[in-house]
């Protein structure tokens, strides 16, 4: 065990040379490669973080857009609901109006039907009354009634005002050739004379009077002077009564 100074110095030199060799051919290339790889990994991590940040931003944007869509959808839904409600209220009002109109129509129809029914009942009652009166008057008709009607006719003619007589004269125009008198029963002579005198006085005509018997008159008589017809008999009165009821309704 002794120290060889040549070996000592040479070993120092050898170690320094080896240090230089390893530094330049081992450590530096490997450390540079490790540094490059770390830088590449850092870049990849940075890119990944950027991608992650971008993904987060996109996610937030997407969520924001989703929220906007949700709000818009809710708004549209509210608007639609309001429109539906508005439309429903309009339709409801329209339906109510139609129902009211229908109810009014039905009420009017019912009223009309009631009126019609009432009218029919009244008509039937009047008809029955007329038939009853006709049957009663037909059974009660006789010479006495005719005489009484004759008297009424004469009273009526005598009580006729001058203006009416003048109007009647204008209506028949040219004077008729004869006056027709129809009666249910044959008139007595004195009755004929009274009648002719009254007619002559009222009409101012001096034309012959032609008498005829018409049993359908039941009782009473009618007088035809040209286009003028003077009626006072049971049949025409009943007919007039019927027509009057028709006109009334």
């Amino acid at each position: 065990m002794e120290l060889n100074w040549s070996t000592f110095v040479l070993e120092i030199f050898n170690f320094l040379v080896l240090l230089w060799i390893l530094k330049h051919f081992l450590y530096q290339p490997l450390l540079e490669m490790i540094a490059r790889r770390r830088a590449a990994i850092e870049n990849q991590l940075t890119e990944a973080e950027q991608q992650h940040a971008k993904a987060d931003a996109l996610k937030q944007q997407y969520e924001s857009r989703l929220a906007d869509w949700e709000r818009e959808r809710q708004k549209a839904m509210d608007k639609l609901m309001r429109e539906i409600e508005h439309h429903r209220s309009i339709q409801l009002e329209k339906l109510k109006s139609e129902l009211a109109q229908e109810a009014e129509k039905r009420r009017v129809a019912e009223s009309r039907q009631q009126q019609q029914t009432l009218h029919d009942i009244e008509q039937r009652a009047l008809q029955q009354a007329a038939e009853f009166s006709s049957r009663l008057l037909a059974e009660a008709a006789g010479p006495e009634l005719e005489n009484r009607l004759f008297e009424l006719l004469l009273d009526g003619l005598n009580a006729m005002p001058a203006e009416q007589i003048s109007a009647l004269s204008n209506e028949w125009g040219t004077a008729p050739e004869l006056i027709r008198v129809n009666s249910a029963y044959p008139l007595a002579d004195h009755q004929r004379q009274q009648l002719e005198a009254t007619l002559s006085r009222v009409t101012g005509l001096s034309v012959p009077v032609h008498y005829e018997q018409d049993t359908q008159l039941l009782a009473g008589l009618n007088i035809i002077i040209g286009a003028w017809l003077l009626q006072l008999n049971v049949r025409d009165e009943l007919q007039g009564f019927k027509e009057f009821t028709h006109v009334e309704h």
């Binding site: 040549s6 081992l26 490997l30 590449a40």
Partner: peptide, 29 residues
Amino acid sequence: QLTSTVITTWVMMAIIGGFAWLATRRLQM
């Protein structure tokens, strides 16, 4: 004076240096 220690060291250095040079010629990522 050159001893076996120095010669062995030189051989070692040659091997280590050659190996380092060869091993780091084509470094890859």
